[in-house]
């Protein structure tokens, strides 16, 4: 009886925790999608390029690669004329790595679905996650997509334990050499047809670990991902929205 009362009190205090509209949620304070102004840079200024820890920025023409960016804000802080401004935008996914480059007057290329993906996975998508050198940042945010707040399961998207039950793999981490064989095995064990999703700057480009001799990224030369979700780590809303877009899910309301 006592434990029942306790449980009811917990339930009452819990209230409704899920985000009803993952498309329109407002994550206050989140440092997300950067917007690049059209104003020309001061002659010869390279403050942003020099400040960037991950070589995410190139000049002439200006491009900021969200596949490399770790959203540290340093470029925006050091720019003498507010060329880069970070917004709370969390739609930070694209179908290709090139689609993640934001430019003057051009945001990233939004995620598109295909008829085949919609038909196969539009109502049910089971994913196996492989961390290949992930620092437990991306892993925590991927886990969060299934918690009571983001509750990705309501859209038929689940993280599963066995690759045999999966329709695809989400990879996090820079792809350490020591995980190369296990990743291959896991991918092979997923029945066809199957998807590859990359979560986080490390998986997409090596991120802050780019250039480490202890990485083996050959998996990505052999298999082409359908979805790249930017962030360090990606916000759960970025992951959920990216996957919903890939599935061709119309509104994401619940």
């Amino acid at each position: 009886m006592k434990s029942l009362t306790n449980a009811l009190k917990v339930r009452a205090s819990q209230g409704k925790q899920f985000i009803p509209d993952v498309r329109g949620a407002k994550p206050i304070g989140f440092r997300g999608l950067p917007v690049i102004s059209m104003a020309p840079c001061e002659n010869g200024c390279t403050a942003c390029v020099e400040s960037c820890p991950t070589t995410a920025i190139e000049l002439e023409p200006f491009g900021l690669d969200l596949g490399r960016c770790i959203f540290c804000d340093q470029c925006a802080r050091l720019c003498p004329q507010d060329k880069v401004e970070f917004t709370t935008g969390y739609r930070l996914a694209s179908n290709t790595a090139e689609g993640l480059v934001v430019r003057e007057g051009k945001s990233l290329s939004p995620v598109a679905s295909t008829e085949a993906i919609r038909k196969l996975f539009g109502r049910s998508l089971k994913l196996r996650v492989v961390s290949a050198g992930g620092c437990n940042g991306c892993e925590q945010e991927i886990n969060a997509t299934t918690n009571v707040n983001f509750d990705m399961g309501r859209y038929g998207i689940d993280i599963v334990a066995s690759p045999r039950h999966a329709d695809g793999v989400i990879i996090s981490g820079p792809l350490s050499t020591h995980m190369a064989a296990a990743l291959d095995l896991c991918y092979e064990a997923i029945p066809e047809p199957k998807l590859v999703i990359l979560a986080g700057a490390c998986a997409i480009s090596g991120g802050i670990f780019e250039g480490s001799p202890e990485l083996n990224r050959s998996f990505l030369e052999r298999f082409t991902p359908s979805l790249y979700v930017a962030g360090c780590p990606p916000h759960p809303l970025s992951i959920v929205n990216g996957i919903l877009d890939l599935m061709g899910h119309a509104d994401g309301k619940w």
Binding site: T177, H178, S212
Partner: peptide, 9 residues
């Protein structure tokens, strides 16, 4: 399995 060569980097 997670070795990324941190100290060398």
């Amino acid at each position: 399995y997670q070795h990324r060569g941190v100290e060398k980097l």
